[in-house]
């Protein structure tokens, strides 16, 4: 057992390493709180990738052209890949993938609330790529320099693919916006439905955010939620203008003095309703995840049994 003083000493060294921009690796000593916070955030991130496959997977069989179908399949497959390496990175902190699934399935772990909205038209595939992946990138780019090595390295790869997805989503929207009146309406409708949830995706307003200060110190967060949101709005408004779509916010206005956009009030009641499990699709998303897991149990058991038999046969041969 270490004395309290020894621990304090280790903690001071640890914080100093982070301040020097050194990476923390799985075998390094770390404060328990650091480990827990990272498990929470990284697994939440992994879960978001996996649950995020569902709203887009919903349109794979109905994609309007072969080209779009192939791109959508590839995109959803990338998300599964992101989930895979984020789960692996989280496992380095001493939690198994099964435990993480258990936390997701029982509602103990969260995932990004945006995936609790339904994808009801093809244009939603454009809006998700453009807005949701756009907001995700803004959240994630700073994480490429976060203090925990495995997370930082995973994020570098994730961000490269996400920015490709975002361009792809914007291109879907552009095509619709330049298409027939019916297509343009479809695009505008999708923007209307996804705009506010995308702003909410960047997290509660700074006054309400409980994790920010500690996370800033550990470089799990480099900018506040409100700053990230402003960055997202300032980046996205001109893109909407470029393709002739209207941001559904009557209060949106360029503020010359501040050099950024002013925007309307976010409906935080809606945000908390969805976070607490009562959004339009929370129950369906969980049902799909839990269903896939439970229906797959016999398959995983069989794979395990087969691997054991094969191993036993090998050993027998060796004798």
């Amino acid at each position: 057992m270490m004395s309290e003083e020894q621990i304090k000493n280790l903690e001071a060294q640890f914080e100093a390493r982070i301040a020097r921009d050194e990476k923390i690796e799985p075998k390094d000593w770390m404060p328990e709180k650091y480990r827990k916070t990272h498990i929470r955030q990284m697994s939440q991130h992994a879960h978001s990738e996996i649950v995020g496959m569902l709203p887009e997977g919903n349109w794979i069989t109905r994609a309007p052209s072969l080209r779009r179908k192939v791109a959508l399949l590839a995109k959803v497959q990338d998300e599964a890949g992101h989930g895979l390496y984020l789960y692996s990175a989280t496992e380095t902190l001493g939690i198994s993938r099964e435990e993480m699934y258990e936390q997701l399935h029982t509602g103990k772990a969260k995932y990004s609330s945006i995936f609790n909205y339904p994808t009801i038209t093809w244009a939603d595939m454009g809006a998700i790529g453009w807005l949701v992946d756009g907001a995700a990138i803004i959240n994630q780019v700073p994480l490429c320099n976060t203090s925990y090595g495995p997370y930082a390295r995973a994020m570098i790869r994730v961000c490269k693919e996400e920015s490709f997805h975002q361009r792809q989503g914007f291109e879907i929207m552009m095509k619709l916006a330049n298409g027939t009146p019916e297509q343009k309406d479809m695009a505008q409708d999708a923007l209307n439905r996804w705009w506010w949830p995308s702003l909410m995706m960047l997290g509660p307003t700074d006054a309400e955010s409980i994790h920010t200060e500690q996370s800033m110190k550990w470089k799990l967060k480099r900018k506040s939620n409100d700053d990230l949101r402003q960055q997202f709005i300032d980046q996205t408004v001109p893109q909407a203008e470029l393709i002739g779509l209207t941001i559904p916010d009557p209060d949106l206005k360029w503020n010359d003095e501040k050099g950024c956009y002013d925007f309307g009030e976010i409906d935080w009641d809606e945000f908390w309703q969805v976070v607490k499990g009562h959004g339009p699709m929370n129950k369906e998303r969980m049902k799909a995840r839990v269903g896939a897991w439970e229906e797959g149990e016999w398959v995983r058991d069989a794979a395990m049994a087969y691997a054991e038999k094969k191993q036993a046969r090998k050993q027998k041969q060796a004798i």
Binding site: L73, A80, L84, G291, E295
Partner: peptide, 11 residues
């Protein structure tokens, strides 16, 4: 897609 028995088989 998204409903496989494991992430690996899904991919």
């Amino acid at each position: 897609t998204g409903h496989g028995p494991s992430l690996e088989t899904d991919i």
